[in-house]
Design a protein around this nucleic acid. Structure first.
Length: 492
RNA sequence: CGGGGAGUAGCGCAGGCCGGUAGCGCAUCUGGUUUGGGACCAGGGGGUCGCAGGUUCGAAUCCUGUCUCCCCGACCA
């Protein structure tokens, strides 16, 4: 079979681009740094949305929607927050165009300058907290548990499909609580939601951890994260959950009367995952033949490909059998498509559905039917086997579950094999260059050392794992005392 | 913003040094034969060669300017 993809071994970055483009997930757009999400990619995102949305609602959250535009003055109210986002904000300065009197087409009307410029949201903390001020008076109004599905814009210098684009889709949860403890509990709870989603649906194992000061969200007291490992040994932050303390409450004066009738500032959290998850999914599982999608998120779970010949009666038998199987699969909630398009031949279809990552393919020809069988191929391992038509739907249901499970286990094994304990600087550099993956090493806890390591190796501290084992040791760079190991990696 | 690469048919590319009717593969359309891993035969359609100037009898090709995209880096989810 002629491969349409660059192989991972030859050029990992190019392989990723190829697979996103040729797998039908996205296209480049006319706008620099922005992508068009195509139906297959968007269906994947929709499936993620549905699952996450249910998880958010099951944990008591409601959806709302806040404006795309943020008054410039809002952004400057929380010092650390401005610092973090100022460099990548798109700004709306005018509200009208007009025809160029010199005939150069349409131009910005200089008369139509905005009194106060508007920022296209890079995240919504400021607009949301300015609103929450009006919503919260009493402890009885708390907790306030809101999520929004939205697009945001961050003017990135360098972009990559799904992983980092100027505009991206995400959800952002913003909650307000009466106590510090409750807000921290919320932060951790949502981190667990993300971890569960990543592992049980995306089949991507993640490490839950807390970020160091250097990597913390601008304006947060603590940033929790889930970190995943991609096939090239680079780490990817797949989701974050922030404990914001009272920073935004103070910046936007969000106070409430507590049970003792005293005024207090509320405690805040925010948490988000984005379309970046699609990129994570691709890089965690896919291979040189195309996408490999976990059954629980795949836009299409099963495709049936008929193998026709000249015998029209045999053709009808295949069509009828396929119709029966489809009905049984659909009754089990399994998505299935029958591709009897006569313009492409079976081999072409096989390759195409592999490229698209459809988890299970059923092929049926006259020979199979004579034996009361169908050929079933699984995308993850590319194994093929003959299955009895009798009870096929149940077998497929089981197979989908097995694929989901095995994809996770394979990724977990890879991840665990690529966490390397290192106790010397030489080994640190060597492992980073030769093996990559996560490096578990002692760190003296100072931002300066972390920064130095980043400058020297491009590796950052991805997180301090939760429930981390306490172990006395010496910092891998400075030799200073350390009480625990942290995870380093080069990251996306 | 630095370094590298690239813009020629829907996609992938050749042609350019040495200016002279714009080509190849895939895709597409028509007809036929086919169908168990990206089918075959025959015929057809499709192009302001990124854009703007310039040189020239004549520019995809030479010159100047400009825009865009990709990769690597700085910044970041």
């Amino acid at each position: 079979m002629s491969s349409v993809l660059t192989s991972r071994k030859d050029d990992y970055a190019q392989w990723y681009n190829d697979i996103v483009l040729k797998g039908g997930l996205a296209d480049y757009s006319a706008v620099r740094g922005c992508m068009v999400i195509k139906p297959h990619g968007y269906a994947l995102w929709e499936n993620m949305q549905h699952v996450l949305d249910k998880m958010f609602k099951d944990t008591g959250h409601q959806n709302a929607y806040f404006p795309l535009f943020i008054p410039k003055s809002f952004l400057s109210k929380e010092a650390a927050h401005v610092e973090g986002f100022a460099k990548e904000c798109a700004v709306v300065t005018h509200y009208r165009l007009k025809n160029d009197p010199n005939g150069g087409g349409v131009i910005v009307d200089p008369e139509a300058k905005l009194e106060e410029e508007l920022i296209v949201r890079p995240t919504s903390e400021t607009i949301i907290w300015s609103t929450y001020k009006n919503w919260v008076q009493s402890y009885r109004d708390l907790p306030l548990l809101i999520n929004q599905w939205a697009n945001v814009v961050r003017w990135e210098m360098r972009t990559r499909l799904f992983l980092r684009t100027a505009e991206f889709l995400w959800q952002e949860g913003h909650t307000a609580h009466a106590t510090r403890e409750e807000a921290i509990e919320e932060t951790r709870k949502m981190l667990d939601v993300y971890a569960t989603f990543a592992e049980e649906y995306m089949a991507v194992p993640v490490i839950r951890g807390v970020k160091t000061a250097n990597e913390r969200f601008a304006g947060a007291e603590d940033t929790y994260c889930i970190e995943a490992l991609m096939q090239d040994g680079k780490a990817l932050q797949a989701g974050t959950s922030h404990f914001l303390g009272q920073n935004f409450a103070k910046a936007f004066d969000v106070q409430f009367s507590n049970k003792e009738n005293k005024m207090d500032y509320v405690w805040a959290t925010s948490w988000g995952v984005s379309t970046r998850l699609v990129g994570a999914l691709v890089m965690a599982h896919s291979d040189d033949n195309g996408l490999v999608l976990p059954p629980r998120l795949a836009p299409l779970q099963v495709v049936i490909v008929p193998i026709y010949n000249k015998d029209m009666e045999a053709r009808k038998r295949i069509d009828d059998t396929a119709a029966t199987i489809m009905k049984e699969l659909k009754a089990k909630g399994i998505s299935v498509k029958y591709d009897n398009d006569d313009n492409t031949r079976p081999g072409w279809k096989f390759a195409e559905y592999e490229l698209k990552g459809i988890p299970v393919r059923i092929a049926m020809g006259p020979r199979d039917l004579e034996n009361g069988q169908a050929e079933v191929a699984r995308r993850d391992t590319k194994e093929k086997a003959s299955y009895q038509l009798e009870g096929l739907a149940a077998s497929i249901e089981q197979l989908l579950a097995d694929i989901q499970q095995q994809m996770f286990e394979r990724a977990l094994k890879f991840r665990d094999e690529n966490i390397t304990k290192v106790d010397s600087w030489d080994d640190f550099v060597k492992v980073l260059d030769e093996k990559a993956g996560f490096i578990s090493a002692h760190w003296d806890g100072t931002p300066e050392t972390e920064e130095k390591i980043k400058e020297m190796t491009k590796a950052t501290i991805r997180c301090i794992p939760l429930n981390n084992e306490q172990e006395a040791g010496k910092c891998v760079l400075t030799g200073n005392a350390s009480s625990q190991r942290v995870l380093f990696a080069r990251a996306y």
